[in-house]
Amino acid sequence: MSAFIEFVDVKKIYQMGDVKISALDGVDFEINQGEFVVIAGASGAGKSTILNILGGMDNSSSGKIVVDKALISEMSPKQLTDYRRYDIGFVFQFYNLVQNLTAKENIELATQICKDPLDTDATIDAVGLQGRKNNFPSQLSGGEQQRVAIARALAKNPKLLLCDEPTGALDYQTGKQILKLLQDTCRKNNMTVVVITHNLSLCPMGDKVIKVKNGKIISIDINENPQNIESIEW
């Protein structure tokens, strides 16, 4: 049985005038279903590019990407849109909520375009925002906004949850809570979660930790016993 996600010799080259910049220079890894994966690396190491390509937001220059048997690397823009629409949940660093919609509406914004969404209210309850579902984003704190964002991603009932520095804009305590939510989601729902961070201290919580540097994978470690987020300090 092959892996749920497969990256085979994936390269991404940006043409900047006469200069070619290689953002990914032959990346290979595999992720299994239900794994909580942390991709870590410094700024500009290529982790965001991996996320973009994996999330169907960008194309690789060469190489093969398979997600749940689908060949992402060969998809047309239209197919990629559907891939994002039905298969991917995305959590942004800056939450990216629609300011003009309430928390609940922001979630519904995502669910209305899905085939098999989760119940909105249940999802809101799940992220612990029972009392605030009718508030606008500006009326919520950063953590609450990120919870809404996670709820929005989860409610789509995606195959894969991609999180781009989900705690980057949050304070320590709130960041922890958010990571806990993600980890719980992974465990409870058998959801495959990929978290991108520059914070190496988050590595112990992942089932699998992929470290990136200069567009290349420098290590793939499998944690037999991932730690709970509560026990990690940074």
Partner: peptide
């Protein structure tokens, strides 16, 4: 710009 880009990431089609 940001909202639209987000919608695209969420998988909104062009016409949407």
């Amino acid at each position: 710009l940001r909202e639209i880009a987000t919608l695209k990431v969420l998988g909104f089609h062009d016409d949407e």
